[in-house]
């Protein structure tokens, strides 16, 4: 029963991701991405990291996806249908994106082979106390760097909207 649920989530993640990149309707591709993120959250619960699962749902669905749909809704339908979604020729920035994807996949596979499928999981619990203490001691520098990046993004957004007003 539990295995069945796992395979359902795995299938949903892959099928939704494939649909998201193949469909011609941009809004459907965004909602397919929602299904994909939701399924990945489910898989994260299976990996015994429920805090990450919920954080994933909150950031990707509650933040990024909603902003994407918002952008689509505010743009005109005509300009959306004219937009070229499936360009045959690949430009430079697309090569860079492809390179980043391949690099991330290689790193992922490296860790997969490093630890193998039979490595026992050291479950430390999903207690927020452990996560909080780890973030503010062992991983303080990355945590602060990410906060700085977010602050920069905030200030930039405020600047952009103000420019548009004038």
């Amino acid at each position: 029963m539990i295995n069945l649920v796992f395979y359902f989530f795995a299938f949903l993640a892959i099928a939704a991701a494939l649909y998201a990149v193949s469909t011609k309707q941009i809004i459907r591709s965004v909602f397919a991405m929602f299904a994909c993120f939701f399924a990945i959250s489910g898989l994260l619960v299976f990996a015994q990291s429920d805090f990450i699962a919920i954080a994933h749902l909150m950031i990707y669905v509650g933040g990024i996806l909603v902003v994407m749909v918002f952008g689509i809704m505010l743009s005109q339908k005509a300009s959306l249908s004219n937009a070229v979604l499936h360009n045959k020729s690949i430009s430079l920035h697309q090569y860079l994106a492809l390179l980043a994807c391949v690099a991330l996949f290689v790193i992922l596979m490296y860790f997969f082979y490093l630890y193998g499928p039979n490595t026992p999981i050291h479950y430390v619990g999903s207690d927020i106390e452990i996560i909080g203490i780890a973030l503010l001691t062992k991983y303080l520098l990355p945590f602060e760097l990410v906060s700085l990046l977010l602050l920069a993004a905030f200030i930039f957004t405020a600047m952009v909207t103000r420019k548009n007003k004038n």
Binding site: F31, F34, F38, D50, F51, I54, A55, L57, M58, V61, G62, G63, L65, V66, V69, F70, M73, G125, S126, D127, I128
Partner: peptide, 19 residues
């Protein structure tokens, strides 16, 4: 252990349904 955090995430899924 993450009850209230889960509830906050749920509200954002409802938002997507309204959209």
């Amino acid at each position: 252990n993450i009850g209230i955090f889960y509830l906050l995430a749920i509200v954002s899924i409802e938002v997507l349904g309204i959209l």
